[in-house]
Design a protein around this nucleic acid. Structure first.
Lengths: 117, 117
DNA sequence: CGGTTAATTAACTTGATGGCTAAATATAGG
DNA sequence: CCTATATTTAGCCATCAAGTTAATTAACCG
């Protein structure tokens, strides 16, 4: 079981079924049966996936009679986006901030023959 | 073993040790021993983490004498950023692009078994 | 050659994941 | 009350994840 929220988010997203469920929920609330319909797996299996998503706070659930509509909660995705932002300049060519980084990398590469630690 | 590249990326990132390794590599190449130093776990454990990162193509490795310097490869992070971008307007209030957004999500839902590794 | 350092592989343990079927719970409605 | 529908829980199983220690490979150096 993951400890920190970011690990929890990433783990929950690291499954195509769960990402497909999120994609469906991005269009609006849906019940468990509606969410399970596109998949070949059993309903309890989908229920488990939903529990993983709920644990990661990527979805929330309300109650309406015997239905438990699920709703997408974007907060963890926003957090993930923030984490990714720290690395974004690695692939964006933003020279203002990238130059120092690349220079450091180049130095590392050039001094590889002198490495002795 | 994950099937599609995005699941592979997310799974590799869903571990604090592996994310810490990436954070270290963002500052430049490093050997396995250098990467293992901050952690209390054994060297083989770190080696396994590196293999996971390598399988996800988040790092690449070269050879220099008995050292195997690791290097961060940002491509999968960029892909993840692209995937996340489909959801970005859920927390940014940009409903003007909602149609494109929904279309993209529909594509994501349909591509259940992508494997273009 | 022999020894040291770097890193991986092998073998094993522990616990979690992801799937199933069958049973249980909750609610609506006749 | 009884039944149908929606969903979860309970067992069960196979596989995998993440760590360990011990052994192995690979390369340098005196």
């Amino acid at each position: 079981m993951s400890l920190d929220p970011l690990s929890n988010t990433l783990f929950a997203l690291a499954d195509p079924t769960r990402r497909a469920i999120l994609a469906r929920l991005a269009r609006g609330e849906a019940t468990v049966n509606e969410l399970a319909a596109p998949f070949e797996m059993s309903l309890p299996a989908v229920s488990k996936h939903l529990k993983v998503l709920e644990r990661a706070k990527l979805i929330s659930r309300s109650r309406n009679a015997q239905w438990r509509p699920c709703r997408l909660e974007p907060a963890p995705l926003k957090t993930l986006d923030g984490w990714l932002g720290d690395y974004r300049l690695l692939w964006e060519h933003r020279l203002d901030r990238l130059e120092d980084y690349l220079a450091t990398l180049q130095i590392e590469r050039d001094t590889k023959e002198e490495r002795n630690d």
